[in-house]
Design a protein around this nucleic acid. Structure first.
Lengths: 238, 238
DNA sequence: ACTGATCCTGACCGATCGGTCAGGATTCAT
DNA sequence: ATGAATCCTGACCGATCGGTCAGGATCAGT
């Protein structure tokens, strides 16, 4: 073995981590039932017995992987809360960041989405309280303060706004492979442009804009899509 | 056996259907790898060999279940396209209907969401083209015609609007078990109220409304200031 | 009554599953 | 050097996996 490792505990921790990494990849790819302990051992480059030495059962290994995922769910909320720029700019930054993190840690994202389909009501509570609620509440709190400062409509349920933004991102992530094949979709390969459109729609709605309210938030969507003639004056409904 | 069945082919078709139903339930619940052919046979009330008589391999059974799901993905787009009422009303009806169908056929929904996490790029194309694209394109077409008639902003990518609406619904469906436990969320048990908020936000955006748009687009514009209290509206059926 | 086709079953197959076990290395503390 | 503890392995276990097979029913056509 290489001499730099301090001792057996160090090497062991490394092995343990390799097993976790292998398990994370495989579980995310094929699901709990679709992965064998032998396959995990092989991918980690150790014997199957060694896997059982570190994790007594398959389920405990799965839980350990999920637990590790939990440490990585911190969302970058600081910039949204106290960053520079207009609220629209910050919201756009946050949404883009969230989507980027989903795709960057796609294994973990897939794993958690899989878990959502697997769990009954019991585990849902754990997942909700121990993993997601803190960030979700923080996000909602920020939105609520945005309402108090007049940057957001006050008659909205901020939790609904949060659900729409996060949910749209999650769906974009999990359905990206489909969206790629829809001829109408030009943004499948371009998460940033999708984020722009999402925030634009969230901010302004989809109804025809009336007079220009002197909005300087951001320019029109630059990339990809079919440039449609700007809505000069909405024609009277026929 | 009951005497009403005409013959063996009839009984066979019935057996085949029972196997498919059992497989659909189990696949949706535990995923492809988490279900054994024995378990499917047991739930269908037949022998394992009988299952293999009707479906030569486990994978072909899985495909048959997915294929059956495809027949049920028809979304009620007629009312959105040619129904009565304002565009806002029709859009709200469509969104609510879509979400209701997701939860009504929750096994199928879960199955397809699971498949989204399982497939590589090859099958994604099949799924996209053979299952979803038709409805998606139709929806986009309707939105586009809404743009031409001035009911929708013309500077938007209608596919993005569709993705946001459908994606938010899908996310609400798959994360409902989590949302139930978020203290900020009051709409987890109430899809209709969530749909209302979603359409409201989609239509008007989340920015503070400017005064008196003089807009005739939709009816339920409350006079004067908005009620600050979120949600809790009496459910509005279409 | 006979044939051919389909439906369905219990028994069975090799492979793989999750998990165990005894024991060889390696390392730390003494 | 030696004992204790941990790391890791090949060999192995019973159970279950996906899938096969020969054959008993049941039916339609003749």
């Amino acid at each position: 073995m290489s001499g730099s490792a301090p001792g057996h505990t160090g090497a062991g921790g490394r092995t343990s981590r390799r097993i976790l990494a292998a398990a994370e990849t495989l579980f995310a790819e094929h699901g709990f039932g679709g992965v064998s302990m032998s396959a995990i051992a092989m991918r980690a480059g150790v014997s199957k017995a060694s896997v059982f030495h570190h994790f007594s059962t398959k389920n405990s290994l799965y839980l350990a992987v999920l637990l590790r995922a939990r440490q990585d769910t911190a969302i970058h909320l600081q910039n949204l809360e106290s960053g520079e720029g207009s609220f629209a700019t910050r919201l756009s930054g946050f949404a883009g960041n969230h989507l980027a993190r989903l795709t960057k840690h796609k294994q973990m994202s897939r794993l958690i989405l899989r878990e959502l389909l697997r769990i009954g009501p019991r585990r849902a509570r754990q997942l909700a309280e121990h993993v997601f609620e803190e960030n979700f509440r923080h996000f909602v709190t920020i939105l609520r303060s945005g309402q108090e400062s007049g940057e957001l409509r006050a008659d909205l349920d901020p939790a609904a706004v949060a659900t729409i933004l996060l949910g749209t991102n999650v769906f974009f992530f999990e359905a990206q492979a489909l969206l790629r094949h829809f001829r109408d979709v030009s943004f499948a390969e371009n998460p940033e442009s999708f984020t722009e459109m999402l925030v634009d729609i969230l901010l302004h709605g989809i109804r025809p804009r009336l007079a220009a309210p002197g909005d300087t938030a951001h320019g029109p969507a630059p990339a990809g899509g079919q440039p449609v003639a700007p809505a000069r004056r909405p024609r009277a409904r026929q």
